[in-house]
């Protein structure tokens, strides 16, 4: 369980997050929606300790990641997978090297087991046989899926997705949505998905939270959000309805 309590984060005196509190329950997929620049990605980076808030606490299974020392922080991060908006694959490494880099570091496994796990992760994201390709040889959707394979390689309990469908064509975006659902179904991971793609939000989300003016303005199940009269939600929904 992830418990975010009263966090404030500012950049150059501009408050991006202001007394924000939020709870992510075990095994659920929480989708955070909000306008561009509303601080969604900042929130993800705070959860995994890439950024530090000025005030507040972020408890991961009761341990405050904000106050964690270097070693504790590394231990806590091993429970996480992170899928970056840009995929952030290591461009000098092959697909398999990207996936097994952390395995080699954190698991003292024999080479054969590392190869098996790499293949297993690639199979999970339907990218069999691409082990020796470089990221530059892959399409945007493939890179995103390699990012997912890399994120799940170390058996994380939590996966954070930063705009997983942004910049992808509808079919590829739908594949990614189905992949997120598959992760929940088969691996029982807890996920936090940051997006402004409402179709994706309604497809993968058990709960949806709106980040607006530095706070969570409204949160609830997709059915509740669909009926909301919150002006920001209505703006998001009007775009979604138009698309549909």
């Amino acid at each position: 369980m992830i418990q975010i309590e009263n966090i404030c984060k500012s950049f150059n005196t501009h408050f991006v997050l202001n007394q924000l509190s939020l709870m992510v329950n075990q095994g659920e997929t929480l989708v955070i929606i909000g306008k561009s620049g509303s601080g969604k990605s900042v929130l993800l980076k705070l959860i995994i300790g890439l950024l530090k808030p000025e005030t507040g606490s972020i408890l991961i299974e009761g341990k405050n990641i904000v106050k964690a020392g270097f070693r504790d922080l590394q231990d806590m991060r091993r429970n996480f997978g992170f899928v970056f908006q840009s995929s952030a694959l290591f461009d000098s490494m092959t697909v398999s090297e990207n996936i097994n880099l952390a395995l080699r570091k954190h698991f003292k496994w024999p080479e054969q087991k590392i190869c098996e796990r790499t293949t297993e992760c690639l199979n999970f994201v339907n990218l069999e046989g691409l082990q020796e390709k470089l990221p530059s040889e892959l399409s945007g959707g493939m890179r995103k899926r390699v990012g997912v394979a890399r994120a799940i390689a170390g058996y994380p309990q939590y996966i954070l997705f930063d705009e997983p469908t942004t910049g992808l064509d509808p079919e590829t975006a739908e594949n990614i949505n189905q992949l997120i659902l598959k992760l929940k179904r088969e691996l029982e991971v807890t996920s936090v998905v940051v997006t402004h793609d409402m179709h994706s939000a309604f497809t993968v989300g058990d709960r949806i939270a709106l980040l607006h003016k530095g706070k969570i303005d409204i949160e609830g199940e997709p059915a509740v959000i669909k009926k909301s009269y919150h002006p920001e939600i209505k703006k998001f929904l009007s775009g979604y309805t138009l698309l549909k």
Binding site: L50, R77, F80, D91, K105
Partner: peptide, 18 residues
């Protein structure tokens, strides 16, 4: 610099690398 702006250094950090 390229690793920083393409979030590859962040990726290393979230993979519990120093």
């Amino acid at each position: 610099g390229t690793m920083r702006v393409t979030e590859q250094i962040d990726a290393l950090e979230v993979m519990a690398f120093n």
